[in-house]
Amino acid sequence: MNKQSIISIQGLSKTYDGGFQALEDVDLEIRKGEIFALLGPNGAGKTTLINIVCGIVNPTEGRVTVDGHDIITGYRATRSMIGLVPQELPTEAFETVWNTVSFSRGLFGKPANPGHIESVLKSLSLWDKKDNKMMTLSGGMKRRVLIAKALSHEPRILFLDEPTAGVDVELRQDMWNLVRGLRDSGVTIILTTHYIEEAEQMAERVGVINQGSLILVQEKQELMDRLGNKQLRLHLHEPLQGIPASLSGFDLEFVPESCELVYTYHSQRERTGVTMLLLALGEAGITFHDVDTKQSSLEEIFVNLVTWEK
């Protein structure tokens, strides 16, 4: 096990009874105290991976340890460390918020602690709803309750499976502030999300999974630097009839609608070609009144990776 690792996944595979292979030989190390984003299209295996670590799904092959404890033989130790916010919104319709959150704490082997439950509910703006029945809450509120349930037993690892699905912008920001606070207090957070900008904002490392295989795991910034293209957009004074022959050696695209010349390059390369391009533009007599650059988003990188895999 890596010195910093808190979750170690080795050779993990899962084939469901119907023959569908959800995971294939996955190796992954999650570091203590990090926010790790697991990205992948629908059906990629993200939820299966999480469910195996949490004990909800049986692995077919491979081994998973949490803080050195095997998830099968040492399930009491591993599960008591983990909090899970599932993708769906399963709730006990007739229970109150307070009861359902308190139930979770007991279920995970912790003695009653009304002070902690109060603090969790307040941090999620649920305190005034504590006596409301679950059936009376909106989808966003139910999502908060699920987070409260996951935090009720003070987990050291928190899995957030699509936590902001169906949640409004304000609440989403509240949630991410809470997640950052948890990370600062030492909680390891593993999240899956379709809002890639969230992973981009929140995560320190990113894993991309597709068709059950982990395509890559990398520091978010390294990934963006390695695979991210940068675009230099030149706003021209006059439109071009076409790309002049003297500029054909550059990766250029002319956008007539906005009268822009777009140059795509890798920002991490020693020679980006920007200087050469600007000189060549001057020689060709092409003038421009403004210039801006844009870095590829994680979403664009992700789409490229998945498309490349296909």
């Binding site: 004990g55 909800i56 599960r79 599932p86 399963p90 082997g109």
Partner: peptide, 17 residues
């Protein structure tokens, strides 16, 4: 009922024999 509503996930993921 927990199987029907999906809340069984919590029991299955809890440190309980």
């Amino acid at each position: 009922f927990p199987r029907f509503t999906g809340t069984i996930y919590e029991v299955l993921s809890a440190p309980i024999s």
